Simulated scan of single mutants.
Amino acid sequence: MASTDTPVNRLPLDRHPLFRSSDVDETRETMARVLCDHRLEVVDTRKPLDARMHSCRLNAVSLNYVHYGTEVEVTPGKTESFHVVQAHLDGNGVVRCGKREAYTEPGHAAVTTPTAPLRMRLSGTSRLLVVRFERTAVEAVLARHLGHPLRRPLEFELGMNVGVGRPAHWFSSLEAEITRANLDDTLLSDPRVVAPLEEQLITGLLLVQDSNYRAVLDGKVPSVPGGTVRTAVDLIEAAPDLPHTVGDLAAAAGVGIRALQGAFRRQLGVTPTQYLRDARLRRVRDELLAAEPDAGAVSRAARRWGFGHLGRFSGWYRHRFGENPAQTLRQ
């Protein structure tokens, strides 16, 4: 385990340490401030607790790394206000949520339901990613996909195979954003980055994990009234620097997210997110063409128009205009 602390193989979120402790009460109380009150028991008292937690709060999503250093039983009961995606990087565990039970290990995660009592047993080698999704945010995104309020509470299947298919792709994106959050503080401060990111993570979870709404989400995409796409396009073009999300655009157009995405694809051949990105790229290009060349001009323009990750921005810009931002600046 000592090797995981080396610079070559850094611990997740190591720039956001919350605590490290061998005391059960301190561990429980500190973790409760990020997650919820719970009972924590060391299974074999001959093997001391060596707990640590790294934690990074966005807005409606909290990214966490947890390690206990010994086998433990954790009993939160009903979390009520949030869902959890819990994934092993090492070790294994058994998670029970209501009447459901799942064996968890690398490649097999757990997705909890707030209204069902939660209990878990984790091996001493367990290193965990624990991602908290606020229940209100998840339900709001789901309602915007459906285009109407929820008629029953959302209930996820507990087990999630993140080793294959669409769940694997979603989980890889989650891991990438955890790495990004550890390296780029812009993610924590710019709502134009945070709001779409959280909506993207929640949307992905809803679409890849089985639930009592999955069949509806996989069903036929509703049609939209004429002028729906134009309404969304006008909002984007009027102020592409604002923290637009697809949910916000859909609500303004009076339709659900799925309906708006389908209409954009049919009429424009792109998603709302792609259209927004293109509008921002065009504004950056206009600014660079009018700017005096200097070392910080590209990064200032990119951040002004909502691009928090400069590497991704440069790739998108090059693909869109066939040249690097610096080449545009020198023209």
Results as ranks from 00 to 15, higher is better:
N9H: 15
D184S: 10
A143M: 07
P243W: 02
L118T: 01
S21P: 10
Q327R: 09
S3N: 14
A252G: 07
H67G: 10
R135V: 09
L122N: 05
Q267T: 13
R46T: 08
A253V: 02
A250G: 04
A110C: 08
S21A: 08
A301N: 08
H309T: 06
W316G: 00
A102P: 00
T328W: 01
M160A: 15
L310H: 10
P196R: 04
G93F: 08
G69F: 02
R52Q: 04
P325S: 06
S223G: 08
A168I: 04
Q209S: 14
F82G: 00
P114D: 00
R265I: 13
V194T: 15
A195S: 12
A87F: 04
A51H: 05
N324L: 15
H309V: 13
L206G: 04
V194R: 11
L183Y: 15
T136I: 15
V255H: 04
H148I: 13
V130N: 03
G322Y: 06
L35V: 05
V94H: 10
L142T: 02
V255R: 02
G269W: 02
L122G: 00
V298S: 01
A239G: 14
V141N: 04
L197S: 02
T6N: 05
Y275H: 10
E101L: 14
P272C: 00
D14I: 12
I202F: 06
D5G: 12
N182R: 08
Y103T: 14
A2C: 10
L18V: 01
H148G: 09
R230N: 09
K47D: 03
T231R: 13
G219H: 08
L63W: 02
L122H: 05
P48W: 02
V284E: 07
E71G: 08
T113K: 02
K99L: 14
E175Q: 15
T231F: 05
W170R: 06
A297M: 11
D286S: 15
P167E: 13
A32L: 03
L183H: 14
T112V: 04
G69Q: 04
A259P: 03
S55E: 09
P48T: 11
A259C: 04
P191T: 05
R318P: 03
R330P: 14
Q267Y: 00
R282L: 06
T45R: 14
P167S: 15
P106D: 08
Q261D: 15
R121K: 14
G306N: 05
R46F: 03
F171N: 12
P106G: 04
L146P: 07
E139A: 04
D185H: 14
F82I: 12
Q267I: 04
R330F: 08
L158H: 06
L207T: 08
V224H: 01
D14M: 15
D286E: 15
A302G: 06
S314W: 05
R151V: 15
L35S: 01
R119I: 13
G77P: 00
V130M: 11
T6E: 03
V141H: 08
P196C: 02
E26I: 00
V208D: 00
S123C: 01
G98I: 07
F82Y: 07
